[in-house]
């Protein structure tokens, strides 16, 4: 199945990737090739087959409601690009 350049642009926006115009054609071609590979699946009869989200047929293990964490803000923010007064900074958010 082919994917158009316009669709690739839309997907790139959803994924927050700024594909420059000059790279769009190459990306589109690559994605088309991958989708061609993947399209083999459409021919498989999967009637009644339960989707498998996970390799283990197990149920989830839960944790007790206990506070185990203490403040490590300074350590964690040491790797942050921009912080002030303990806050992470981003360009102005318009709601």
């Amino acid at each position: 199945m082919a994917i158009s350049e316009a669709e690739v642009k839309k997907v790139a926006r959803l994924a927050r990737l700024a594909v420059p115009d000059e790279r769009l054609a190459a990306y589109t071609q690559n994605l088309c090739n991958i989708l061609d590979l993947v399209d083999q699946l459409s021919a498989v009869d999967t009637t009644g087959v339960e989707p498998m989200a996970h390799p283990l047929e197990m149920m989830q293990r839960l944790r007790e409601d206990v506070v185990t964490e203490t403040d490590h803000r300074e350590k964690y923010q040491a790797v942050a690009p921009e912080v002030e007064d303990g806050l992470y900074l981003v360009p102005k958010v318009i709601e």
Partner: peptide
């Protein structure tokens, strides 16, 4: 998101 002004940015 805290919209007080941090040099024109938003604090998280």
């Amino acid at each position: 998101s805290l919209h007080e002004d941090f040099q024109g940015q938003t604090g998280i």
